[in-house]
């Protein structure tokens, strides 16, 4: 469960980029986080994951406050950042071992997961190559593999499908669905409205640092009386009105 309470954030000399954000995401759901460029999606996710400090309010993950109990909170989520260019001088397997060491994944478990997931993503044969030589999609896959190694109860993904080939995107979406079906939480930002429409149980729409809508797609249609409208049309209307 993710609990965001009264969260605000401003960068020095600027107006608030996140303003009094409240969001409560229950277990067992896939939640899509939508908003135009510069709406505050990445800033919110960075605060959720402890990358940025929170100016006001609190964020807790499965009951652990990210600021008061950072190590406990960070141990229960897995985060895929928007840019997969991490530790490029390491080989794929070295990176995965490093991540598994940090999350203290036992040898047998990590070996099984590395083999299974990298084979699913078709990067198994590239494990002994430097990440620097990987394509954007391959880098994205190795990061996702790293995130899944410790089987976190919460997945936080920033634009996770960008750069993935259709097969890998399909596998990742299946994984997200399986994860939610096990009663765990998936929270991801995306610009792909079709993906959100097809995959998410709930959507949260943000613009200018303020939450415009949070609920199921059905709720959205009822709220905006838009039975004949697609998510795209509602999204455009919502974000252009602000």
């Amino acid at each position: 469960m993710i609990e965001i309470k009264e969260v605000s954030k401003h960068f020095s000399g600027q107006r608030k980029v996140i303003n009094q954000l409240n969001l409560s995401i229950p277990d067992g759901k896939i939640v899509g986080f939508l908003g135009p460029n510069g709406a505050g999606k990445s800033t919110t996710i960075k605060m959720m994951t402890g990358v940025l400090p929170i100016d006001e309010g609190t964020i807790s993950l499965d009951g652990f406050d990210i600021e008061k109990k950072p190590l406990e909170a960070k141990s229960i989520f897995g985060y895929v950042p928007d840019r997969p260019d991490l530790f490029l001088r390491l080989k794929g397997l070295e990176y995965l071992n490093f991540i598994a060491d940090i999350y203290q994944v036992p040898k047998v478990v990590r070996q099984e997961r590395i083999e299974r997931i990298t084979k699913q993503f078709s990067i198994y044969n590239s494990l002994d190559d430097y990440i620097q030589s990987y394509s954007h999609g391959m880098r994205q896959k190795i990061i996702v593999t790293g995130v899944l190694l410790h089987d976190p109860s919460i997945w936080i993904l920033d634009e996770p499908l960008t750069g993935l080939d259709p097969k890998s995107a399909y596998i990742l979406k299946e994984m997200m669905r399986e994860h939610a079906n096990k009663g765990k939480t998936v929270f991801f930002s995306s610009h792909g409205l079709e993906v959100v429409e097809q995959l998410c149980d709930e959507v949260a729409i943000i613009n200018d640092g303020e939450l415009l809508f949070y609920g199921t797609l059905q709720d959205m249609k009822e709220t905006y009386e838009s039975d004949d409208q697609s998510l795209e049309q509602v999204f455009l209307e919502l974000t252009s009105n602000e």
């Binding site: 940090i102 203290q104 590395i114």
Partner: peptide, 25 residues
């Protein structure tokens, strides 16, 4: 810098080891 290679289960087993966090870092 591109490189192409193959990987085997034996290699995975050989190159996978548990290391304390500080040493791994």
């Amino acid at each position: 810098t591109a490189n192409k290679s193959t990987f085997s289960g034996a290699k995975l087993s050989r190159k996978t080891s548990v290391t304390p966090i500080w040493l791994s870092y």
